[in-house]
């Protein structure tokens, strides 16, 4: 008996259509609420102050790119963008490398204390590192890396490792033993087995972990706020606060700044929405 049959038989087509229609209307309204503010922002980026204040919902003249040119030429926007790319990119490469190393050892070898090592990482999952900002600030100062991008990279790696180890361990455990055993019989060394036999198989989990780390690191504001003072080292969210403060009366420029700052992540999200959703809910859906 198919689901659809029982469903329609019992309720009558009209009633079902009415209910589904109502649900559809609610979903459409919700989507308008979700996307509307971003559309208004996008339009306003091409408008003058007067246009924004008089007709915030109207279509702009998309050839008027004065605001965007201003952001491009008169602010440090490109520098901030580049800094964000450097910091986020390096952090993710290191997280995935170290995370895979630990997860591989925990998942594929039996050794004394492996349970403890996993527990050690998992404990880090739940600790809000923000509250340790005072010792972290002093630690960075003592290491002499305050006001450098290294301070951000190390904190993001430390923040990202627990979940990454957790997810990668779970995934690497599910890999079959046969390939590994066959390679071992052929006399391959352990590093060789890991690199050429097993690692190619963990790519899907690397993508999930990479995305899961990408969004919080790219968007982070708190750690740069504490660690970075030099304008040339600021990341995008932090730099945004700088030029939002400078152009307070020029609303077109403000919206253009918000639009340009959100564009990279929105574009990648639209292309890879399934991976983003899977990655960002990966810790919560299991």
């Amino acid at each position: 008996m198919s689901t659809a049959e029982t469903y329609y038989d019992r309720k009558g087509l009209l009633q079902t259509l009415g209910r589904d229609g109502l649900i559809q209307i609610i979903l459409i309204l919700n989507t308008i609420v979700m996307l509307g503010p971003l559309v208004i922002m996008f339009f306003a980026a091409f408008k003058t102050n007067a246009q924004i204040f008089q007709s915030p919902f109207s279509f702009p003249d998309f050839t008027n790119v004065t605001n965007i040119v201003k952001i491009w030429t008169q602010t440090n926007f490109l520098r901030y963008l580049l800094n964000s790319v450097i910091v986020t990119g390096s952090s993710i490469v290191i997280i995935l490398t170290l995370g895979t190393m630990a997860a591989y050892a925990i998942a594929r070898y039996r050794f004394r204390g492996s349970g403890f090592v996993l527990m050690f990482f998992v404990a880090g999952l739940t600790l809000p590192l923000k509250l340790a900002i005072i010792p972290l600030f002093i630690l960075m100062r003592d290491l002499g890396i305050l006001n450098t991008q290294l301070s951000l990279i190390v904190i993001y790696v430390a923040m990202g490792l627990p979940t990454t180890v957790f997810i990668m361990t779970g995934f690497i455990r599910t890999l079959p033993n046969e390939l590994e055993d066959a390679a071992r019989m052929d006399g391959a060394s352990e590093p060789r087995i890991m690199w050429s036999v097993m690692l190619p198989l963990v790519r899907p989990a690397l993508v999930i972990s990479g995305i899961q780390n990408l969004v919080p690191i790219w968007n982070d504001f708190f750690f740069p706020l504490i660690f970075i003072q030099k304008d040339n080292l600021k990341t995008l969210p932090q730099g945004l606060t700088t030029f939002m403060g400078e152009y307070t009366t020029d609303w077109g420029v403000l919206f253009a700044g918000l639009m340009l700052s959100s564009a990279p992540v929105i574009i990648i999200y639209i292309i890879l929405s399934r991976q983003f959703i899977n990655g960002m809910t990966a810790g919560a859906v299991k």
Partner: peptide, 11 residues
């Protein structure tokens, strides 16, 4: 519905 989630809180 998930689009705003990927945006920075600052934005």
């Amino acid at each position: 519905v998930f689009l705003p989630v990927v945006l920075s809180t600052i934005i």
